[in-house]
């Protein structure tokens, strides 16, 4: 039988099947598979195209394509219930059934806060740097002008691995690592995990995360430190916050300061979160101490700079109102899903 005949035969068989469908209540899908399936009648005709002569091929191809589209249009009309013939077989689909479950995950609140802070400083031309969690006394203390048997060591309870190796207590170690390996000017922020030998409670954990900032160039001033950090605070907490700098002490900066922002919860009226002071302590900062420059062989006569550091957990607790620091580390998906 020629292909043309076969096409004709399939066409009439299809019409017969259509009629029997309406009387016998057969399934549209069975017909679809019979004619349009991967091994269906139409497909088998296409397979035979290989044996058709080159001259006839375009003609045959066209006839076959017409058949295919004719059948598929009719099946589609049946399926959609548009046709009066198929009206009583219209399938009711409840589109309010729940959607496919494609749950989104979450980025940890600490990562989000870190990312937010990072992006502000990247915009200000800071680059990223990283320091190791296990470090030596030299990088964590001595080069930062905190000699052994100095009372400043009491400010940070330290986990030791050996006499001179420890878990870093702050990201300030990165200042030294970076300056040792890079010539000035330097403009970096360094996020990372730090450790303190403190009992675990609602407000403190044996580890937390910090972001350190360091800027060294010619002619860097305290006024510039204030300007940069004030900009940062306004970007992070909103244009309306005020900042306050007050003298503090860090062995690796001189002068040293703490920066407070006006309490974002009570608008400086005084609440429990700001302990009635109207101010929230946000970060420590100061001008890089000349001793630190000497430790990394920078000439303190030539270069000045500022450094700052802040706790990510504290920022996240403020931002999201988290009251128990341990929620950050136990992996409770009921907590994580909310971020």
């Amino acid at each position: 039988m020629s292909i043309t005949d076969q096409i004709q035969q399939v066409r009439s068989e299809f019409q017969t099947d259509l009629k029997s469908l309406s009387s016998e209540n057969g399934s549209v899908d069975t017909i679809r598979i019979k004619y349009l399936g991967r091994k269906g009648l139409v497909a088998s005709l296409f397979v035979q195209m290989g044996s058709v002569s080159k001259e006839e091929r375009p003609h045959m191809g066209q006839a076959l394509n017409e058949l295919k589209s004719e059948i598929s249009t009719q099946i589609d009309t049946l399926g959609s219930g548009d046709n009066s013939q198929g009206e009583n077989r219209e399938e009711f689909i409840d589109y309010t059934l729940p959607s496919d479950p494609l749950p989104a995950g979450s980025i940890h609140p600490l990562s989000q806060v870190m990312e937010e802070i990072k992006s502000i400083f990247l915009r200000l031309g800071f680059s990223m740097a990283y320091g190791p969690e296990i470090d030596t006394e030299f990088y964590n203390f001595e080069a930062l002008n905190i000699p052994r048997h100095h009372p400043a060591r009491d400010m940070q309870d330290t986990f030791y691995i050996s006499e001179s190796v420890l878990l870093r207590t702050h990201t300030s170690d990165t200042q030294i690592h970076f300056m040792e390996s890079h010539d000035p000017p330097v403009r970096i922020i360094a996020p990372g995990r730090v450790y303190r030998n403190e009992d675990i409670s609602v407000r403190s954990y044996c580890l937390f995360h910090q972001i350190e900032g360091l800027y060294v160039d010619k002619g860097v001033t305290f006024a510039e430190l204030k300007g940069t950090l004030d900009y940062f605070a306004k970007e992070l907490f909103g244009k309306k916050v005020k900042t306050r700098f007050r003298p503090s002490y860090f062995p690796f900066t001189e002068p040293s300061a703490e920066m407070d922002v006006s309490c974002i919860f009570c608008k400086s009226k005084g609440c429990n979160i700001c302990k009635k002071t109207g101010w929230l302590e946000i970060l420590g900062c100061g001008m890089v101490d000349p001793e630190v420059f000497k430790a990394v062989q920078y000439n303190p006569e030539k270069w000045t700079g500022y450094a700052f550091g802040m706790g990510i957990e504290r920022m996240a607790m403020l931002k999201y109102g988290v009251e128990d620091i341990r929620l950050f580390y136990n992996g409770d998906v009921r907590f994580l899903r909310q971020f």
Partner: peptide, 16 residues
Amino acid sequence: THLQSCGFHEHYSNSL
């Protein structure tokens, strides 16, 4: 970002 959109939650565990 990729893992978030694939339905993963990021965890920070105690490293001790």
